[in-house]
Write a protein that binds this DNA or RNA. Structure first.
Lengths: 237, 237
DNA sequence: GAGTGGTCTAGACCACAGG
DNA sequence: CTGTGGTCTAGACCACTCC
């Protein structure tokens, strides 16, 4: 988990993020990095591949690697970053209100989206996220109780992800997000500061463990004027 | 460009897409693939890494690689896929109307988003996309004339990307998308079949060449009820 | 123990950029 | 020509899963 190439990756990422490495400048060459970290070329290249995949650098044959100039608040783009990590990056001014926390029997909706049977029990968590004094996001989370035996209000107010990954030791593998725009529901209007909008941005999030079992379904409902999603894409060659 | 590992990658992708490889089944092991393609283990692993990155498989230490069960219409998710590629995947029933095609002097908006100076010239292309008989997307493209000397209506009705990559030989490196929701403009209402909506989903797309120069700025404006964006994300460990 | 994937190494040859 | 990154190889050792 702390492999050599991940150390190199992490060091370079933080150097880029805190400005020690200038955007648009040339990164050290592979051979320089080999010496600096006393590793083989392949190990350096593994780190550089990750940096390229994540949009930190662009590699140019015959030249070297350019550090890309990316708005640091847009990073990590389109990742699995949780609201807590996000709000820390935004410099606080965020609050979470737990509106609902209960074990429920799955209805058709849940059986379809969370892939559970009638006999399972499901945690339902409804939370309102406040940013800059405005209630802007309504998060509805569903977990299969098989994986998360206990949940408390305190955990939900802090970070469910942290609890799941660090305390329960579950390993998140990947997630699929689907973004759509819908008519706002009565629940949206009841819980959020809504002013004049009648539509809502819905981010459906299917989270899978490393063994590919579907583990969580979340609907994150955003006030449209405050919604912003950044994606970084590479041409796969 | 046709490296061994890309061949392996492409073959496995198409086998997954056309159903020759069952979702949720085990992929061949690395050593089997080494023999099948007569390559070294590293070459196999390069292909498998790409497959994992793109969400086709999940690799499990000590077990093997599972083929993920993904809706084939959601793929490639969050890529650089052009409207033409997309419409081919949707099975036709799409049309493109070129509403505007002109060389313009950059205004402040363009100088900011396309990173050009007052003396450059910029191609402006406005196109309406029709799907299933409804005009749903308004695409506004801007290219620096330095890179694209000539453009015709025919090219715009077909695929600008194809022209750029195949005819001009420019190499797209990466792109950054920003998705927001705004009040619909008069232009949106004029060009699109709008019914009852007053908001529009705006996808800003910044396209960069391999040498990291910003080359194109596009605003893709979608009718909210028809908008859908899928993203696949991995926990970077 | 046998088989799987994960990391790391050392060396080779190629393609490309720039003086 | 030198230095850069891109591909490919062969071999080693480790961690994990399953029987």
């Amino acid at each position: 988990m702390a492999s050599k190439y991940m150390k190199i990756y992490n060091e370079i990422v933080s150097e880029i993020q805190n400005g020690n490495i200038e955007p648009r400048s040339m990164l050290k060459s592979e051979s320089e990095l080999m010496q600096e970290y006393s590793v083989s070329r392949d190990t350096v290249r593994k780190a550089l591949n990750l940096l390229e995949r994540d949009g930190y650098i662009q590699r140019l044959q015959g030249k070297g690697s350019i550090v890309l100039d990316i708005n640091k608040f847009d990073f990590p783009v389109s990742g699995l970053t949780s609201f807590k990590e996000l709000s820390e990056r935004m410099g606080g001014r965020t609050r979470t209100y737990v509106k609902e926390l209960a074990l429920v029997k799955p209805n058709d909706f849940l059986m379809k989206h969370l892939n559970v049977s009638k006999d399972d029990e499901v945690w339902k968590v409804v939370r309102v996220r406040e940013i800059g004094g405005k209630k802007i996001i309504l998060d509805k989370d569903y977990f299969n109780r098989k994986f998360v035996p206990a949940l408390t209000r305190e955990i939900c107010e802090d970070s469910i992800y942290e609890y799941i990954e660090n305390k329960l030791g579950l390993k998140i593998g990947y997630a699929k997000k689907v973004i759509t725009v819908q008519k706002a529901s009565e629940e949206d209007i009841k819980y959020l500061d809504f002013d004049k909008f009648d539509m809502i941005v819905v981010v459906k999030n299917y989270v899978y463990l490393e063994d590919t079992t579907l583990f969580q379904y979340t609907e994150s409902r955003h006030r449209p004027d405050k919604f912003r999603f950044v994606d970084f894409a590479r041409r796969s060659r």
